[in-house]
Amino acid sequence: MTKHEDQFFEMFRESFDGFSPEVPGSVYAGVQKKLFWSSFMGFNWARLNIWYLLIASAALTAWGVSGSQGECRALSSSHDSNFPSEWRDAARSQVTSAADLGASIAEISRQERTAAVSTSSARTSHTANVNPEPAVATNNNPGETPHAVEPADNMENPEIAAETTVQPEQMNVIAPAQLPLNLNNLSVATESGIYKQVHSKSDQVVLNLRYTKTIDQE
């Protein structure tokens, strides 16, 4: 190193000796935040961290799932007498996708239609003219109580003198919460009644479908 070079470097060395500028307060806040997250994410028996929360949330989820399944079984068994066994099978199905949900609803509708046609055929012939596809619609007012849906063909049939709404019944379809549907507002219209979701729980949405059926009277 030359003498000139040494002098030049010495100028910098001397200038920065004991250089201690003021540190902004935000730095330490950031440090504490990073330390907290680091401690929180790391496994440590002695501290509350994410692992404890994960275990707790897993336990809660398991409890919620078993609770909702128990509730479904209870509801289903309390209304067993109100539905044909085929409808119950379709309604209890575990839905894993939107397509499954649609298929499940279509199955309910199909079985209901078959039953309606056979019943009507025994009495009169006018209910045989039904819409072959189930309609799925969202209800903008979830708090609204389920109401009777008047079948379209009834309006044209002079033989129908009056309609009577029976007490709402319930069916259950279990669907995961991540289904790409607004399940909170879900209602399912079929030929002779409307299913409407009234309850959801935990990480699964239990489509606790309330069913109102209109009965045509001759």
């Binding site: 920065f16 004991g18 201690s20 500028p21 003021e22 730095v27």
Partner: peptide
């Protein structure tokens, strides 16, 4: 403060120095 002075010499800007110090 001493470490912040060091960071200021090794970085281009004050903001960068704050990040490095943190």
């Amino acid at each position: 403060a001493m470490l912040f002075g060091l960071c200021l010499r090794y970085t281009k800007s004050r903001e960068e120095a704050e990040d490095v110090l943190q």
